[in-house]
Design a protein around this nucleic acid. Structure first.
Lengths: 161, 161
DNA sequence: TTCATATATTTTATATATAAAATAATAATA
DNA sequence: TATTATTATTTTATATATAAAATATATGAA
């Protein structure tokens, strides 16, 4: 015999996952369009600048790729293009020539500041009609999902804890 | 003079947006890995099969690309690869040779059924520790964001309605 | 009919993205 | 010190993804 309770729950899980994908995707598409049309850049490039902006002392390729959760190979290309544009610098560490440090340039910094201001406004539009309490709830619920993802495979249900 | 209330709110908006990106991204990475390792396929291919599975009468390229929210050009390549694998069929409409209809094949159908079952389980893991009420809340909040995205630029704040 | 316009899809150029192999440099060990 | 193993990054092959141009077909108007 079936388990309608469990089945309903499974359907609900899928519905939420699809909603996460569609809502995130739509906001992301909007941000990407604005970055492209207003600043002739892309989201991954913006993300790189954002991290380097917060670390004026530089970050290694490896650190940055794990911060951004992208592969090393992906970051290699991104960093090359950003360096070509004069927005970042890349230099091997004298003490270990394998390791390469990335820095944001003065131009990259000022470019990022312009974009970050706008970026905040674009994102804010989507939350305009949220109550403070709803924002807090949403943050908590999403954090719970991320936590489950970080635990990945090792976690248990509450019952078993 | 500054407006700490507004500023706090802006920070919170950004925090949530980043959390949407990170939580969705981590679940997505997990699903992509499983699809790759267990079924030698990818998320976009799975998405195409999912839509065609639900429409046995076929869907045109244009319809499908807007359902999946990807460009026509992107779908062209995806559809070619899926047809090569024998999972879908593509055929021009006799009444309008510009339009091409996509269908899932018997093999595609059975392949998708296998994957869908697993997919549901993978996704369910992330919501294991959620109460029914929390799931409902999350769905509502995400829907509100998606709604704002769909209204894109035309919407007003509640105050002004 | 014929020409202009509109529509559906594909092609092209380019940027992300990954996994896996290759490279380069360092560290560790015999 | 030589050899081995490890680490950091790049390269390669492939798949997604888009915007813009090109193609092919259909529709509409003169």
């Amino acid at each position: 015999m079936e388990q309608p309770r469990t089945r309903r729950r499974e359907k609900q899980n899928l519905r939420i996952w699809l909603k996460m994908l569609s809502s995130t995707g739509k906001v992301e598409k909007h941000v990407r369009s604005r970055l492209r049309e207003d600043f002739e850049t892309t989201l991954p490039r913006f993300d790189v600048l954002a991290e380097l902006y917060r670390r004026p002392n530089g970050v290694t390729m490896g650190e940055l790729s794990s911060m951004l959760m992208v592969s090393n190979g992906n970051l290699t290309g991104l960093a090359n293009r950003l360096q070509q544009d004069g927005l970042i610098l890349k230099a091997p560490m004298p003490t270990d020539k394998r390791t390469h440090l990335l820095y944001i340039t003065r131009e990259g910094k000022s470019r990022f500041e312009e974009m970050a201001k706008e970026h905040e406004a674009w994102v804010g539009e989507f939350f305009k009609n949220f109550k403070d309490e709803e924002l807090a709830q949403l943050l908590t619920l999403l954090s719970k999902i991320e936590y489950a993802a970080d635990m990945g495979g090792t976690e248990e249900t509450d019952d078993e804890l």
